[in-house]
Amino acid sequence: MSVSISPGRVRSEFVKKIKELSGETLQLCYQCGMCSGNCPMVSNMDLSPRQIIELARLGLEEEIANSKTVWICASCLACTVICPRGFDLSRLMEAIRLLTLRKRVDYVRPEEIPVKERGELPQIAMVSGLRKFSG
């Protein structure tokens, strides 16, 4: 994957916000890719977890916004426990999700979940799904 970086494309405000929300130090990551290698969802992602970190710290908000990756993440913390640098990627994923959800843009709306599924899904699925995907 190649991305073009220019001062005009970099959103420093975005970097600041995700740092604040996640409480994580983005510079910790040395791009070893252990997170991607250990992610059980990676095959369904368009950007790998490692790439998300790199794009995030470059401030390339658009690339991240156009990617499904943060919505495929299931917060399973497989990346968190394996990271040799102690970087908690699950918090970065959450921060990026929240930037969207807090604009009142829901990824899943309760009324759009098919009625049959609402009756079949265990309550924890509904609670966790709506917490992660609606603002």
């Binding site: 059980p40 969802m41 299931a74 917060s75 899943v108 979940i113 899904l121 966790s128 995907f133």
Partner: peptide
């Protein structure tokens, strides 16, 4: 034995869950 089953992804992308389950 410690790999995620897909968790709350069942709400947003139920189709992907069967792949995780099969693994």
């Amino acid at each position: 034995s410690t790999r995620c089953c897909g968790s709350y992804q069942i709400v947003s992308s139920p189709d992907s869950i069967s792949g995780y389950a099969w693994d």
